[in-house]
Amino acid sequence: MLIAQVTDLHLHADGGHPNLARLHRVLDHLASLQPRPDLLVLSGDLADDGALESYRHLQAALERWPGPLRMALGNHDSRAHFRAVFGDSHVTEGFVQGCSALGGLQVLVLDSLEDGRHGGAFCDARAQWLRAVLQGIGAAPVLVFMHHPPVDVGIPWIDPGAGQAWIARLDAALQGANLAGICTGHVHLGGVFRWRGRTVATCPSSSSDLSLVFAPMQPDAPDGRPLVEQGEPAFALHRWSEDGLATIFGRCPQRVLATWNVATRQMVADMLQEKIPS
């Protein structure tokens, strides 16, 4: 089972903004993979400005994706404008959340948006819904997608910080779940973290990267450090098997350096042969 994750698209109402072209590159690349992913999850900050036209650009771009799709919202998104374009097919009880089966895996999308707040949120209503869903799932493995990671990653201005009530509510609601992992966006970088005995994987962004500067920050003392950079458009691939979850971070390729041809045939054959138990 292969799940593709694209996050932090940051589309603009202006269709000429480069983030839309970067998204097209990612979608075309993912659709060309063999095997093609069984599911695509867009994990928030779909729009940068929350504008209706941004979601219309997204809707048009997704016409090039041939398979199943799930979406979550991030702090740059507008729930109302998202619903105005995509309807309520991704909405449950007023939030962009839902659960669906993919083979033997339950894919659970959570809504961590709170209007007017940059960081995450998870209110009592969402927590109650999550507990009810997990009770119905029982012992089946669950893979969670949401925008905000419930754990610090080391970049001060993006970390949620200690003592967040929404994180405590999420933790309590997840108790007892057979959790394969939690896959998030928001950080714009690929990483794997431990959170209260669980694995959290953050997905790199199709639009930009956050700068790897871990030094402490004082709100009233800007020091000129870089905050946001830009490499090639990125994504994550989550492969689920009976052995568990494996996550790989990728970027859209620019130049192929090697192919499987007569020059590499023996090396590949030797490596494949080594997989056969002796």
Score class of each variant (00 low, 15 high):
Ala60Lys: 06
Phe82Lys: 06
Asp115Ala: 15
Asp209Thr: 10
Val133Tyr: 00
Leu143Gly: 01
Val192Asp: 09
Arg265Lys: 13
Val228Thr: 11
Asp243Gly: 09
Ser206Arg: 03
His24Ile: 00
Glu274Tyr: 04
Asp48Leu: 06
Leu272Val: 04
Gly94Thr: 12
Met71Gln: 14
Phe122Arg: 03
Arg64Ser: 15
Asp38Thr: 01
Pro66Trp: 01
Val187His: 10
Ala221Tyr: 00
Arg194Gly: 15
Ala139Tyr: 01
Pro253Ala: 09
Ile137Cys: 11
Leu134Pro: 01
Asp77Gly: 10
Met217Leu: 15
Glu232His: 07
Leu52Thr: 15
Arg70Met: 15
Arg239Glu: 02
Val213Cys: 13
Ser241Thr: 12
Ala180Phe: 06
Leu33Pro: 05
Thr259Trp: 08
Pro216Leu: 07
Gln273Tyr: 03
Ser78Val: 01
Gln175Ser: 13
Thr184Leu: 07
Met267Pro: 00
Arg194Met: 10
Ile137Arg: 10
Val262His: 13
Pro35Met: 01
Asp270Asn: 12
Arg117Leu: 15
His90Gly: 00
Phe95Glu: 14
Ala13Phe: 06
Ala125Glu: 15
Met267His: 13
Ala234Val: 03
Leu170Thr: 13
Trp195Lys: 10
Val268Ala: 08
Thr264His: 03
Ser241Leu: 05
Gly176Pro: 06
Gly224Thr: 01
Leu102Cys: 09
Ala201Pro: 02
Pro222Gln: 11
Ala139Pro: 15
Val228Trp: 08
Leu113Gly: 02
Glu242Lys: 08
Phe249Asp: 11
His10Gly: 05
Val107Glu: 10
His186Gly: 11
Ala246Gln: 05
